[in-house]
Amino acid sequence: MQLEPALLSYAGLACLALTTTRLRRDIALRPLPPVGALQALAVAILAIAAWQAVHLFGPYQGPVAFIGMLAGAGLLLVLLLSRWPQAAILAAIGASVLAVLALTIAAAP
């Protein structure tokens, strides 16, 4: 479905957002994972997103797709965070579940 890089970018950026002081103070979700773990997770998810982009769009369009989708997902995340921070973070969990599902279906024979 070609949206996996966008979903994963959203999830990865949400992890990064959770490492900022402002959001850690304001958000009602508890317990929050430690900053270090979130950063590592973010890097891992974004790496998978990049790999997926290259996998889906090829070596030339892949990087373009990754950067574009990263930016698009970032915009959506910031907009949602500004209005409904909890929902934005929960949506990140939903996005990663969807992405994993899509990847599993794609991998199935």
């Binding site: 070609q2 966008a6 769009f57 369009q61 797709a65 574009g68 989708m69 930016a71 698009g72 915009l75």
Partner: peptide, 17 residues
């Protein structure tokens, strides 16, 4: 012009940004 539907909408979204 290379972009398929998904990338085209991404372009559109970023253009709006």
């Amino acid at each position: 012009n290379f972009a398929g539907p998904v990338l085209r909408w991404t372009y559109f979204l970023l253009g709006l940004a």
